[in-house]
Simulated assay, not measured.
Amino acid sequence: MLRLILRRVLLSVPLIFAVSILTFVLQELAPGDTAQTILGDNYTEESYDYLRHRLGLDQPMHERYLDWLAGALRGDLGVSAISGLDVGHQIAARMGVTVSLAVAATTVSAIVGVALGVVSAVRGGLLGRAVDVLSLIGFATPAFWLGLVLVSVFAVEWRILPATGYVPLTTSVGGWLASLVLPVAALTSSAVATIAKQTRDGMLSALSRDFVHTLRANGATEASIIFRHALRNAAIPVVTVIGLLFVGLMTGVVVIEVTFGMPGLGSLALTAITRHDLPMVQGIVIAFTLIVVVGNLLVDLTYGWLNPKARVS
């Protein structure tokens, strides 16, 4: 298992470098200028040239990237070109919000989706068709629209949950859970449906195999067949889907954080992009990449637990 972890970590290093280079280049090609954003509409040519020189924007792109990379390798992501605040500190202060939202949404999606998939595969009939309908509805429902509907019902009409904001776990466990309910519900609508459908299809395939008939002939209980044997055989593709959905949730997190006014990396990224704040954008993209790398590593570890052959692959 340690060999698997080391191999995946080493493979992630080129990915992080490639993402950082691509982000830097795309930000350079994007319309807008950091110096113009800071100075506003009324500025002189001298003040514009001076500010660009002070920010290092008059240097060649490859030199600026190498300077940033040298600092990043030392753990220094630089300072925001707009606010002058340390990028690393800003990201660290908001990381908990994004991680809480992503992990909670993935966990809820996995638990509810697997439960629905198992029940629909075992019971079949109307419940199986309901999962198909739920999948179609989930795919077609935008997360931000569902979030607005949930806010209007549960926060405005019934007033049982907060509409915006985030309460840290260290401040109040109840407040933390309450602040996550509506954002997580909006994020998990399509994910639950996808996992449920994948689980149902995998369970139906596993339950039709010969080893299940052999287990029943040998007197194995139905619960043992379903949860110990069939679900374990169906789990590999389900885990793959969960891993892909976790990566996809990173995009949804940006929208949901803005919709619910949550002070996470997504809302910070949107502000940094609109202001053409390259150091902040670079740092946030690297942070999101690291979150995805850790998520994929957890998926690989789950593979190793479910299938020992994957530990040496």
Rank of each mutant, 00 (worst) to 15 (best):
T164A: 03
L150S: 02
P183R: 06
V212W: 06
A186L: 12
P168Y: 12
G165W: 04
G175A: 13
I160F: 08
V212H: 07
T164H: 06
G202W: 11
T170C: 01
G219W: 05
T164Q: 08
G147N: 03
T170Y: 09
R209S: 12
N218C: 11
L187Q: 08
T170R: 13
F227R: 11
P142I: 10
V173P: 01
W145K: 02
A193D: 08
A220R: 03
V192Y: 03
L148H: 01
F144M: 12
V156S: 10
S152K: 10
T141C: 12
F144R: 09
S172F: 08
S172W: 09
T199Q: 14
A186N: 05
L150M: 05
T194A: 14
L161I: 10
R159D: 14
P183S: 09
D201L: 14
S189K: 01
F211G: 04
T199E: 14
V181I: 15
A206N: 03
E222C: 02
A185N: 00
A196N: 02
G174W: 07
T141S: 13
F211I: 05
L215E: 11
V181L: 14
S208P: 00
T221D: 11
L204A: 10
P168H: 10
A155E: 07
L207H: 02
R200E: 10
F154M: 11
L215T: 07
W145E: 06
L177W: 02
L215G: 13
F144D: 11
H213V: 04
E222A: 11
R228T: 11
V192P: 01
W145N: 05
A186Y: 12
L182M: 14
S172D: 15
A191H: 09
T199A: 15
A155Y: 07
S172V: 10
H213T: 10
L148M: 12
W158Q: 12
V153E: 07
T171P: 02
H213Q: 10
F154T: 04
W176K: 05
I160Q: 08
A185Q: 03
S179T: 12
P142F: 05
G165E: 04
L187A: 15
A140F: 04
L215A: 15
L180A: 06
S224D: 12
T141M: 15
P183N: 06
R216Q: 11
L207A: 06
E157F: 07
I195E: 02
L204S: 09
H229K: 05
W176D: 03
E157H: 12
I225G: 02
F144H: 10
S205N: 14
T199V: 14
S152L: 15
T199Y: 11
H213I: 00
L169D: 01
L182G: 05
T194P: 00
L187P: 01
G175Q: 13
A185D: 03
L146W: 01
R228E: 12
T171H: 14
S208G: 12
D210G: 07
R209I: 00
A223E: 09
L180E: 06
A206E: 06
T188H: 02
R159M: 13
A196P: 01
A155I: 05
V192K: 04
G165Y: 05
G175H: 13
D210A: 12
W176P: 04
L204G: 02
T221S: 15
G174K: 09
G175P: 11
A155Q: 08
F227A: 10
R159W: 08
D201K: 00
L187V: 13
L204R: 14
P162K: 10
